[in-house]
Design a protein around this nucleic acid. Structure first.
Length: 568
RNA sequence: GCGCCCGUAGCUCAGUUGGAUAGAGCGUCGGACUACGAAUCCGAAGGCCCAAGGUUCGAAUCCUUGCGGGCGCGCCA
């Protein structure tokens, strides 16, 4: 509806220009359509006349009046008013809203999705954890944010691939091998020492036990070969475990990209050659440096150490080159906020490869605090935070949270706040099956609509085919507001996709359910306002609206990857 | 010291990329069930939008400075 209005305003402005009486700038500015906070200001408003009047040096109200006079498609509008300093306020006729309901029901499960007019080939890369331990809650947030952003982009009409970059090369993996080896020696009753920067968590013990039953004491000596073997074994097992956790979250990747495989295929050397060829790499102090400073980074960075080993950045340059070589026109990376300092150098890498660094967008997810509420003797509620720190082994494991709160609640909580804000994850609240849990509030709304539709069927109340006549009884303010709300789902999805911000969709769902509950509740006081009321014509129209509400809620929940139960 | 994020109701957070009288949930107080599902709804109280300047018809939103909190700043990943 917003988009339609936008094009009508545009047509009006163009016809003003054609009339020759107004010297409108060319090109015209973007026409923003807004939702007035107060209903007296109409269903929609535009501020474009105020913006234009400034540059044209004319009276904004006079311009607004001219736009209103020239407005096409007046039949849809109950009123078009000039207000305040130059707002143009639109109020639609009920019949115009009825078309929205028809449209939603016609589109069904596709309602909210855009036709792929200008599809980009996009890679969303997320999770990308080292296979050196279980996922913790921070990874979980990244996983869900990435997954939902990928879905949003698909719904916005793009061609999207979800990829997990497996950091299975380098020092971390060596540490893993050495740590497992230490545990292995421990099981053998030999003296052992977990490396200083190794992995101290208990989760390595079962892996060591497996190796013990396989090899006995044959591998007691820490040869480089043995460490490498243990590292490969551990990385494989831990990656399996990571995938189990992702599956429990409902996160499914399309593709995995192994750093080790890329190294072995010569990808890193190849990328370095390319940059040497274009003069972005120079030797200094026995190492090789990437000229990232002249491409926007704070300083230059080492890519080949003085001992000849490449750095993590070298791999990452190669990996991003690899993604671009595979034909992706947009790269979206979901990273934990602790990696923010890394953005500039990877963007510099993209630029050094001769491409627009704007092709790479990085979404940073801020820290997750898992909190548990404790009520003291004064009734004061305190949130106890559990800090996560992977190295020390006392982190909050994602799996524990999923097992406790469930998949739906975990996903919902991870996307309900802006990724830029730190998140307090209240496990007690997430598992609560009650009204103060926002997940259940939304799901209950969906189940309740389903219940009405079910009751209608049981009672033999027919739902007519959607048509202007069948929908004509929908004239109540609550009903028209509800239509406006659910009709905005496509805009909400577009907006979320464009901004890479899923949380707006959560607010849409919450707001829609609240409006539905309020509408429903009016029927308790006045039976003539019930969906299943005596007047079967009205009942039919309201059942059509209920179906459309159900569809909007179900589609929104589907994008979030949260189930839409028919009963609870 | 430098960089990024955050600062909005008692608490947790939205705020449609600069619009009209700043919103929601929780919590508090007061109401509505012989039910189209009360896992709900209605109402009340609660604000110097961290501070000070600036930009303009108009600022929670943009700019500058400062304050407070978080996270980073390696030839680690």
């Amino acid at each position: 509806m917003k988009a339609q209005l936008q094009s009508l305003v545009l047509q009006a402005l163009q016809s003003l220009r054609a009339s020759g009486q107004w010297s409108l700038p060319d090109p015209l500015p973007a026409i923003s359509i807004e939702l007035p906070k107060q209903k007296e200001h109409g269903d929609y408003a535009t501020t474009v006349c105020m913006a234009l009047a400034k540059s044209m040096r004319v009276n904004p109200r006079a311009l607004a009046q001219a736009v209103a006079d020239a407005f096409p498609g007046k039949g849809l509008f109950q009123s078009i008013e000039i207000a305040g300093p130059g707002f143009l306020n639109f109020r639609l006729k009920p019949a115009a809203w009825h078309l929205v309901v028809e449209d939603i029901l016609r589109q069904g499960e596709r309602f909210g999705a855009a036709s792929p007019a200008q599809a980009d080939k996009i890679m969303v890369e997320y999770v990308s954890a080292n296979p050196t331990g279980p996922l913790h809650v921070g990874h979980g947030r990244g996983a869900v944010v990435g997954d939902v952003i990928a879905t949003l982009l698909q719904w916005a009409g793009h061609d999207v691939t979800r990829e997990f970059y497996v950091n299975d090369a380098g020092a971390q993996i060596q540490n893993l091998g050495a740590s497992i080896h230490a545990r292995y020696r421990e099981l053998l009753g030999l003296p052992f020492e977990i490396p200083e920067d190794g992995y101290k968590g208990d989760y390595l013990i079962p892996l060591a036990r497996e190796l013990q039953s396989k090899h006995g004491a044959d591998k007691a000596e820490a040869t480089p070969e043995t460490i490498a073997e243990f590292a490969r074994f551990g990385a494989r097992r831990l990656l399996d475990r990571i995938n189990d956790d992702l599956l429990a979250l409902g996160v499914r990747m399309d593709s995995y990209s192994s750093e080790q495989a890329m190294v072995e295929a010569g990808g890193v050397e190849n990328a370095l050659q390319t940059l040497r060829g274009s003069g972005f790499i120079y030797p200094h102090d026995g190492a090789e440096w990437f000229k990232s400073k002249e491409l926007g980074d704070e300083k230059d960075r080492v890519v080949v150490r003085s001992d000849g080993r490449t750095t993590y950045l070298a791999s990452d340059i190669a990996y991003h080159k690899n993604k671009l070589d595979r034909g992706y026109t947009r790269l979206i990376n979901i990273w934990g906020a602790d990696h923010h300092g890394y953005i500039a150098r990877v963007k510099a890498a993209v630029a050094a490869l001769g491409l627009d660094p704007g092709r790479l967008q990085v979404v940073l997810t801020q820290m997750v605090n898992v909190v548990r509420q404790v009520v003291d003797e004064n009734g004061q509620v305190h949130a106890e935070a559990v800090k996560s720190s992977k190295r020390e082994g006392n982190f909050v494991v994602l799996r524990e949270v999923i097992d406790e709160a469930g998949r739906d609640a975990t996903r919902f909580f991870f996307v309900m706040r802006s990724a830029a804000s730190q998140l307090d994850f209240d496990v007690e609240l997430a598992r609560k099956q009650s009204n103060d849990n926002p997940v259940f509030y939304v799901q209950y709304g969906h189940a309740r609509v389903c219940s009405i539709l079910r009751k209608a069927e049981e009672d033999g109340i027919p739902i007519p085919p959607a048509s202007p006549e069948a929908l004509a009884p929908l004239v109540h303010e609550d009903e028209l507001n509800l239509i406006q709300l659910i009709g905005s789902l496509p805009e909400v999805i577009q907006n979320c996709a464009a901004r890479l911000e899923p949380h707006h969709l959560v607010f849409f769902l919450d707001q829609t359910v609240a409006a539905f509950h309020a509408w429903y509740q009016k029927g308790a006081a006045d039976p003539s306002l019930r969906v299943l009321c005596e007047d079967r014509t009205a009942a039919g129209a309201r059942l059509l609206l209920a179906s459309a509400i159900r569809q909007a809620l179900a589609n929104g929940l589907t994008v979030l990857g949260v189930s839409a139960p028919e009963r609870m």
